[in-house]
Structures are given as structure tokens and as C-alpha cells.
């Protein structure tokens, strides 16, 4: 009897409440008008002025650039918060974490160069097609995590500043460009028409490296014991 009450309280009651909540949510979703009142026409009208032809990239880096600026700040904040928790870093190349199979090592050797190339391509194509800094950065981060897991690169005791530079780079360049738009007399993050493409390309490239590095740093879940990526062949 006691057990039944416990299950009722811990599982059935939340299930019932969530179901009711879900029904209300569903009603709200179904009630959305079939003809959306969006910003499609505004974006399409201003697209020729944005410097790029992919509307999503134009929204991310030009029309609503401050969203992306704050998002990079959130990413940096996550690294700072994780580093301030003093948890034990992941020991890469340690037998307890990595199954030492030849398959992983060979696969990573084949994949890593292709992944870095793909990361660059995805970032580059972002001006015209789906792609951009975030997609490219996550491919780059995946390549780095694979390399770390296969012990192809490791982190060794040295200064911590290269890691800090990677983590801060994206936000720093973004803030400099945003400040520059104010200096030349435009609105905050309002790029000059002629330089819009060049500025966004620089921004995208820097963001790709910074996002890729930051995500790989977050994978450690702590301050890496050391500072610079280097080969770990001599550690066996």
C-alpha cells in the first residue's frame, strides 16, 4: 500500500500533470495560423544589402548580430564556469578512457584531415548556402575530440594562455568589429555596405576556430592539466 502511494506520487502524478500540460501545448501549437506572420518578406527585401545571399547567415551575423554576439559570450561563460569548478580534468590517452584498438587510430587518421577540410568548406559556403561558423566549428570540435580520444594530440603542462586565447578570440573579435561600427558612425553592429561581406567572412573564420576550440575545451569538463596541444607519441 505504501509502495503504491510512493509510485503514485513519484511517477503517476507527474505523468498525469505532464500529459495535461502537453494537451494544452498541443492546442496552442495547432491553433497557430496556417499563414505565418513572420519576417520573411523583410529579410528578403534587405538581403541584397546584407553582404551574403544565405538568409539565415544574414540574420545571424547582420540583422540580428547581437544575438550571436551574446551567444558567443554564453559559450565563453560556460568555459569560465566549468574551469572555476575545480573538477578533475579528463586524462586523454589514458587506458581507462580509451579502448586501444588499431581501428580507432586508423579511422581517426583517415577522418581528421577530411573533417578539418569539411569544417573550412562549411564555414566558407555559409554565405550562400546552409552552413556557417557554428556548423563548421562543431565539425572542427568533433575532429579535435576524436584526435584527443585516439591520443593523437594531448595536452601537456605549459602555460595556460593559449587555451584562454582560443576561448576568448571569438568574442574579442566580435566586440572589436561591433565597436568599430560605432566608431565609423554607424549603429551598433551595422556594417558598412561595401565591407559587409569581408567583415562577416573574417568574423565567421575567427568564430569557427574559437567555437571549435571552445567546444573541444568544454569536452574536458575542467581546466586541462596543461596548456598546449602537442603530440603524445613519447608517452606510449
Amino acid at each position: 500500500m505504501l509502495k503504491l502511494t510512493a509510485i503514485w506520487l513519484t511517477h503517476l502524478l507527474p505523468g498525469l500533470l505532464v500529459t495535461i500540460f502537453g494537451i494544452f501545448l498541443l492546442q496552442a501549437v495547432i491553433a497557430l495560423p496556417a499563414q505565418p506572420v513572420g519576417l520573411t518578406t523583410e529579410v528578403q527585401r534587405e538581403l541584397p544589402n546584407s553582404g551574403v545571399t544565405n538568409p539565415v547567415t544574414a540574420v545571424l551575423l547582420n540583422f540580428r548580430g547581437y544575438d550571436t554576439l551574446l551567444e558567443i559570450a554564453v559559450l565563453l561563460l560556460a568555459v569560465v564556469a566549468v574551469w572555476s569548478l575545480h573538477v578533475v580534468p579528463l586524462r586523454t590517452g589514458h587506458a581507462r578512457y580509451v579502448a586501444e584498438t588499431p581501428v580507432l587510430a586508423h579511422l581517426v587518421r583517415l577522418l581528421a584531415p577530411v573533417m578539418i577540410l569539411v569544417a573550412g568548406y562549411i564555414t566558407w559556403i555559409g554565405s550562400a548556402r546552409p552552413g556557417g561558423a557554428f556548423q563548421g566549428g562543431s565539425v572542427l570540435a568533433a575532429a579535435m575530440v576524436l584526435l584527443l580520444l585516439a591520443s593523437m594530440i594531448g595536452i601537456r603542462p605549459r602555460q595556460r594562455w593559449p587555451l584562454r586565447v582560443v576561448a576568448v578570440l571569438g568574442l574579442a573579435v566580435f566586440v572589436v568589429i561591433a565597436g568599430g561600427t560605432l566608431v565609423v558612425g554607424n549603429q551598433f553592429l551595422e556594417y558598412p555596405r561595401n565591407q559587409a561581406y569581408a567583415l562577416m567572412l573574417v568574423l565567421e573564420s575567427v568564430l569557427t576556430i574559437s567555437i571549435g576550440g571552445t567546444l573541444a575545451l568544454l569536452f574536458f569538463g575542467a581546466i586541462p592539466e596543461t596548456a598546449s596541444f602537442e603530440t603524445m607519441n613519447d608517452e606510449g
Binding site: T40, D67, E71
Partner: peptide
Amino acid sequence: DPVPHAMVLTGIVV
């Protein structure tokens, strides 16, 4: 509409 798509990209990173 590209605006919600951009919001999702931002949301994923957050």
C-alpha cells in the same frame, strides 16, 4: 522564415 532558423542555431549553442 529565416529568423526562427537563426534562433534555433543560437539555441543549440546555448
